[in-house]
């Protein structure tokens, strides 16, 4: 059924409410890692690192189909899944950067994969076309020319992921109301 008709479907509503909560949890964990990066490397403000950002090849997942006039729920779901996959891989760089917080980073990767499969199952339940990604196809880590660049890269991976989650959250909330 077209997504519009589903606004009354209780299971779809439960899916949205549950995964809104899940997204809030992931956002909280990303924020916790951002605090660690700030405390550990004194990298706290994006505006102080804009020049460096241009030199670093930091993945940023597109979500243009999740907001504004071009909002299309099924396409947005696919973009969210693709983005979660991108950040799942990028977090490997953060894992290397913060070995002392491996548990939190790995939980974040688990949650990102879990949220993506939740969305995939929901899309399948809705009869929407879905992409099944090879589970272990990991993207190559960006090559950082120095440890400092690695730190800044880690900072932007988390900042971009937080923004991505914020947009994804608003899209899910839009569908929930």
């Amino acid at each position: 059924a077209p997504l519009a008709e589903l606004s009354g479907d209780q299971r779809f509503h439960t899916f949205l409410k549950n995964n809104l909560e899940f997204t809030r949890k992931i956002k909280g964990d990303v924020a916790a890692l951002q605090r660690v990066v700030c405390d550990t490397f004194q990298l706290c403000k994006e505006e102080e690192l804009l020049l460096l950002r241009q030199d670093l090849d930091i993945a940023q997942a597109p979500l243009e189909l999740c907001h504004g006039r071009s909002f299309q729920a099924d396409a947005c779901f696919s973009q969210i899944r693709e983005g979660l996959r991108t950040y799942h891989s990028s977090l490997d760089a953060v894992l290397e950067l913060l070995p002392g917080h491996a548990a939190l980073v790995e939980t974040l990767q688990l949650d990102a994969a879990n949220l993506s499969s939740n969305i995939q199952h929901q899309m399948e339940d809705l009869g929407l076309a879905t992409v099944t990604y090879p589970t272990e196809a990991r993207r190559p880590l960006p090559a950082f020319s120095s440890h400092f660049h690695h730190q800044v890269g880690g900072f932007f991976i988390l900042a971009n992921f937080q923004r991505f989650l914020e947009t994804a959250y608003r899209a899910l909330r839009h569908l929930a109301h």
Partner: peptide, 9 residues
């Protein structure tokens, strides 16, 4: 363990 679970499903 968490890694064997699917949350919210």
């Amino acid at each position: 363990p968490r890694r064997l679970l699917q949350l919210y499903r």
